[in-house]
Nucleic acid binder design. Structure first.
Lengths: 150, 150
DNA sequence: GCCATGTAGATGATGCGTCATCTACTGGTG
DNA sequence: CACCAGTAGATGACGCATCATCTACATGGC
């Protein structure tokens, strides 16, 4: 690890600003969601993906692929959500190893109640005040970086 | 919370891409740092701020202000870092309530060893492949959003 | 000097994230 | 059919983040 290429002044500033924004924004979104609906950002993501399929059910490995979560994180998270009654597990007939995660009525109620406030908060804290160009540039940047993350 | 203003298609895509990049990038950086040096991103930030002052010591409230962390998070984190020998607490003569956090020799050694690999990883995963314009746009965007976060 | 209010910091409980590891089933090759 | 590599998923241990709460000292008004 000899002679690392340090960040130049512009990069340094951009990186610090990004880290700071990221941390504060995530914290704010999490707090709003938690306070107003009792859901975490993670719960929200899971429920969104479940409601995206009309069946309201998915195999855990599909959820994992879509969310890009660690497998054990997902498993633990589903256990906690199951304990709170937001989802339920079902056996999978086709594959004896597998399972289904199914959103419950309570889960549907929770996300339906949470969504408007959450979207409003994302808009207010993030998108309001950004120009369409900035939004496009962000998508581009995020996509570029994602590409390099493999 | 009636008639929320939903995100349009562009915003939706940008938001999803941002969330995804954010999650994956953080995970990768954390894993590299953890694997190569036994430090977490959080440890790293704390040590950077301590080494920024030539004394290597700060009042916890200063650290809190700089890092924008919850007070109790900082306190717990310092306790863990102290247990691992990276920092040490000292009493503050001027203010009987207060304390100092001081980086130890071991803390200095840890961050000195960790920094090159971490910077290299940030560069490789994030900055390589971004144009100077993109870097400038990111800083601008992050600063704008931070402004609105209050 | 005494009290009220504010500030610095620590702590316990609880949910989250990661790593290492385990079980159980599948599917292909001999 | 027997075997074995691979895949689906769960679990225990442990460090991290947040909330509520607590102690102790500081400071300004009376």
């Amino acid at each position: 690890m000899n002679s690392p290429r340090w960040l130049d002044a512009d990069e340094q500033r951009a990186w610090r600003a990004y880290l700071r924004m990221q941390g504060r924004l995530t914290a704010r979104l999490n707090r709003q969601l938690q306070a107003d609906s009792g859901l975490s950002l993670a719960d929200y993501e899971v429920l969104v993906h479940l409601t995206d399929r009309q069946e309201g059910r998915l195999r855990p490995y599909e959820l994992q692929r879509d969310l890009q979560w660690e497998q054990s994180r997902l498993s633990h998270h589903l256990t906690r959500m199951q304990r709170r009654g937001l989802v339920r597990r079902e056996e999978c007939a086709d594959d004896g190893r597998g399972a289904f995660v199914v959103i419950t009525e309570e889960g549907r109620r929770a996300i339906t109640a949470a969504a408007p406030g959450h979207v409003e908060t994302v808009r207010r804290l993030f998108f309001d005040g950004l120009t369409p160009d900035q939004v496009a540039a962000l998508e581009r940047l995020a996509t570029d970086v994602l590409g390099r993350l493999g």
